[in-house]
Design a protein around this nucleic acid. Structure first.
Lengths: 230, 230
DNA sequence: AATCTCTTTTTGTGATCACATTTTCGGAAA
DNA sequence: TTTCCGAAAATGTGATCACAAAAAGAGATT
């Protein structure tokens, strides 16, 4: 059993062991630290997190509820397998989900928040130039999240994160095999539309961003990636 | 402490205690057995389920992950409060989510499945005539679920159920104060569209069903219901 | 009657343990 | 070399316990 290494994550004071385990594992999966099909054990993760099985088990159960992990019939815990068809389903779900969240957020964004979003977009490009794929990915998620959570009742956000989590493992594979990090920049378009408070244009820009970004991977490309990872 | 009563639910053989607790609590919340703001305790539920705290705690954690419950800052566990604004957000989210799921399911439904769906619709009307609101509600959910899960990769279904769960508590209030159970019947329209394999018409019928059904509750009606429940 | 204080009870948290199932692995047989 | 089998190890499950924090309650004071 090779000892697990998880991407580090700061632990705010007062955070329960369970909460920390959940957040750290979630982030690890979201940025592609686990391959599809990887199996994890409660005790193994407890050791990696320097805690006991109880809080880890709770965290794992939560992660299964949002599709990030899967308890198999034989009680094994695995990172769900991705097929080209499932990948396509997830992307096609992101589009109405995130278009809707973006449209609903427009009216609630302050000018200052829009400028912060523009700043995040700059940081994405910086990370790309630096070649730090994980940082670019995290910044890209922050860009989307900041828009969607402007809504005072961001009921769609947890669902969106669930989809991101399910896409995480294949992102990890893609990052290893895609040398050049290109990001179709519909972000500028979205920011302009935000400034104009044009809800439909914002929704369209987000939809295009997804479609032309990760959504641009066709089924063959996904199949190829999965073969490379096997 | 008044002893809790949960709607009964069969326990399939071999199902773990945790799984049973999760499913039973989930169903209870989904059909409105708990009021918004109700607080529950781990030990109390463990007693009601005749088990120990451990599996119950895991079930509760999962339920929080899908928005059915909430762990407050002071570690209290409550059924989330609903505001008219949040209610409206949830309904407006159901529309793109379920329209999309329905559209994506059309190509995968067999003729036989469509007839089964029509049969479920008949059972809904029967339960309404009998005046069994909970049964009608469960049948209505079965109607929608059967459509969406025709997709071999029903990635949207868990998200949809999450939204249903969040609407559950207000459904419970509505059922107590709405004497007459009327269901706008867009179901026939959806079934006809399914038979014609008309994806857009199916999506439109589902959207209309939501908008005119529970979505027909305007903010004032919701506020009135919440006041009645307080 | 209302407010404050201190004690008691309740409650969530996390570690540990026993148990049953599953997996792993070494060696025997083909 | 491959297949099969049984012992040993690993693993998920669920109950229990100790602990700290929070809530509830009793009694005194204003």
């Amino acid at each position: 059993m090779k000892s697990l290494v998880l991407p580090p994550l700061a632990r705010p004071e007062g955070m329960t062991t369970h909460d920390y385990a959940f957040n750290r594992l979630r982030q690890a999966i979201m940025v592609g630290a686990f391959r599809p099909g990887t199996s994890v054990t409660i005790r193994g993760l407890a050791e990696a997190l320097e805690s006991s099985p109880t809080p880890v088990r709770e965290a794992l159960r939560q992660l299964t509820s949002i599709g990030a992990l899967q308890f198999l019939e034989n009680r094994r815990i695995v990172v769900p397998q991705i097929t080209p068809a499932r990948f396509e389903e997830l992307i096609s779900l992101r589009i109405p989900l995130e278009s809707h969240a973006a449209r609903r957020a427009v009216a609630h964004l302050s000018e200052r928040q829009i400028e912060q979003i523009a700043a995040i977009d700059d940081s994405i490009e910086m990370e790309i130039r630096r070649g730090d794929k994980v940082a670019a990915l995290i910044a890209n998620q922050a860009f989307h999240r900041m828009i969607y959570t402007a809504n005072p009742d961001p009921v769609a956000m947890p669902l969106i994160e669930s989809v991101w989590l399910q896409l995480g493992p294949i992102l990890g594979i893609a990052m290893e095999h895609v040398t050049e990090l290109y990001v179709v920049d519909r972000h500028r378009e979205a920011i302009d539309a935000l400034r104009r408070r044009d809800e439909e244009a914002v929704a369209d820009a987000i939809a295009a961003d997804i479609r032309e970004g990760i959504g641009g991977f066709d089924q063959q490309a996904v199949a190829r990636l999965l073969r490379l990872a096997a």
